[in-house]
Design a protein around this nucleic acid. Structure first.
Lengths: 122, 122
DNA sequence: CTACGTGTACTATTATACACGGTACACATA
DNA sequence: TATGTGTACCGTGTATAATAGTACACGTAG
């Protein structure tokens, strides 16, 4: 039971995505304390190491911060990404757009999806 | 020399993306014959098995077709994706959007990137 | 000070995916 | 018949994911 191709996404990646989503939705507010590595491991039925990996990733992405000995907390949302971050992200976006178009999903459809999100986010 | 984290993308995935891009750009036209698995392997300095994996993926995505014993050819571009294809793709898109927003890249920026592509594509 | 909870850093094992080398087969064509 | 085509194997080495378990440095509450 090492790797589960449920979603073709690793457990820790799913956790990262899940937490990021909750923060964006406002379910988790800046300053909120996250469950401890060990507690989250029980909740999610995963190994503490897997949770730690997710938390480390989240900290690297700047969405949480760690106070040694106290715990992990939701960080203030970033307003503007620096150019190196954007430069690293852009290829992933371009690749997905190519993927979409090859599948017959046009740019107009992607535009519509984004617009839909903008509306749901207010 | 088994895995090369150049781009954090597998060789065969890079090939798939490269060929899809060339087709979308019109560099490769429908009906054009692709280099054989063995020839492409020499060009790209890769193992024929790796090329075969890429071709198989491209065929599964419907961007090329195979005539047994003759070779692989560029397929006609898809106009509309069926609903199952869209349903499979949508989560990837949503995940990337969440990723972007967490990095401080807003929806407006993504919209702008798409608009930019629409212009360059005419 | 003591005890506890916190994130983190190790070692080790198992399973999967990627890329490689090599061989073999069924097919179409010259 | 001979060649080129995609494809299907077997085996090997390596990297990554997830597991289990232990240990450490830190902050806080008793």
């Amino acid at each position: 039971m090492a790797t589960e191709p449920y979603t073709h996404l690793a457990y820790y990646e799913r956790l990262v995505l899940q937490i990021k989503t909750r923060i964006l939705q406002g379910i988790m507010q800046p300053g909120d304390k996250l469950p401890s590595v060990r507690e989250m491991a029980k909740q999610e039925q995963l190994n503490p190491n897997t949770i730690a990996k997710a938390y480390k990733q989240l900290e690297a992405d700047g969405v949480i911060y760690v106070e040694p000995g106290r715990g992990s907390f939701v960080a203030e949302p970033l307003k503007h990404a620096n150019s190196t971050t954007v430069a690293a992200f852009r290829p992933k976006f371009d690749a997905l757009v190519v993927e979409a178009q090859s599948l017959g999903i046009g740019l107009a459809t992607l535009q519509a999806w984004l617009t839909e999100k903008e509306e749901h986010q207010r």
